[in-house]
Simulated assay, not measured.
Amino acid sequence: MEIRLDDLQGPEIAAMLQAHLDEMHRHSPAESVHALDLDALRVPEITFWTVWDEGVLLGCGALRELDAKHGEIKSMRTDERHRRRGVATVLLDHIIEEARRRGYARLSLETGTPAAFDAARLLYASRGFTLCPPFGDYREDPYSVCMSLAL
């Protein structure tokens, strides 16, 4: 597996992010979906990576700088054909390491509460993320949970 810094220009990533948005809307009401589209990801405070294997896009994820000491994980996604191969784990470890390299004191994320998000919550917990109150623009929501990791 190879992790690449991505410019969000390729058709493969556009398709993956659309599938991500579609899935989020299948499991949560629109007001509870916080996934970003391509344009929202193309801002200076977001760094975006993709994971590839022999020319095949396996997954993606991003790191948003909230402030000089706090980062947020965004757009974590593994293509459904490549799940349970460790793609998300490799990418999550990469993002955590990058957050540490940047000197962040905290790394946070928002994910869903429905059963479809169980694997994601378990992955984050396996790396030390714990439940936390909503941060940034997030609000209490029965379809949403925030997690954080002290770095």
Results as ranks from 00 to 15, higher is better:
7 D>E: 12
64 R>L: 10
143 Y>I: 09
90 V>T: 15
81 R>V: 02
22 D>C: 04
13 I>W: 03
94 H>R: 08
64 R>P: 00
124 Y>R: 01
150 A>S: 14
14 A>E: 12
23 E>T: 11
10 G>C: 05
103 G>K: 08
104 Y>I: 04
6 D>K: 08
38 L>T: 12
141 D>K: 13
58 L>E: 01
149 L>H: 09
26 R>T: 12
14 A>M: 10
111 T>L: 03
112 G>A: 06
82 H>R: 07
125 A>K: 12
91 L>P: 04
6 D>V: 06
137 D>I: 13
142 P>T: 07
44 P>G: 04
32 S>K: 10
81 R>M: 03
9 Q>Y: 05
90 V>F: 08
29 P>G: 05
45 E>D: 14
63 L>R: 02
43 V>F: 01
141 D>S: 12
109 L>N: 05
119 A>M: 07
121 R>L: 00
17 L>A: 10
30 A>W: 09
57 L>K: 08
11 P>M: 07
36 L>S: 10
148 S>G: 14
150 A>F: 09
121 R>N: 02
76 M>Q: 07
79 D>M: 00
90 V>D: 07
5 L>E: 12
73 I>G: 03
148 S>Y: 04
70 H>E: 00
52 W>D: 05
123 L>C: 04
139 R>C: 13
111 T>M: 03
87 V>F: 05
130 T>G: 11
87 V>D: 08
82 H>T: 03
44 P>C: 03
106 R>L: 13
8 L>P: 00
123 L>Q: 04
6 D>G: 02
57 L>E: 03
61 G>V: 04
142 P>M: 07
59 G>W: 09
120 A>N: 00
10 G>F: 05
114 P>H: 08
21 L>G: 04
9 Q>I: 02
80 E>S: 15
42 R>S: 14
50 T>G: 01
118 D>V: 09
134 P>G: 05
42 R>Y: 00
115 A>R: 13
105 A>N: 11
75 S>E: 01
39 D>W: 10
2 E>H: 13
84 R>A: 15
135 F>D: 02
96 I>R: 06
147 M>Y: 08
21 L>T: 06
107 L>P: 04
24 M>P: 06
121 R>C: 00
147 M>F: 03
104 Y>H: 15
31 E>Q: 15
130 T>D: 05
11 P>Q: 09
98 E>L: 11
51 V>Q: 14
149 L>G: 04
54 E>F: 11
136 G>I: 03
110 E>M: 06
82 H>P: 04
38 L>N: 09
80 E>G: 12
54 E>W: 07
119 A>I: 06
15 A>F: 01
67 D>W: 09
26 R>G: 00
21 L>P: 00
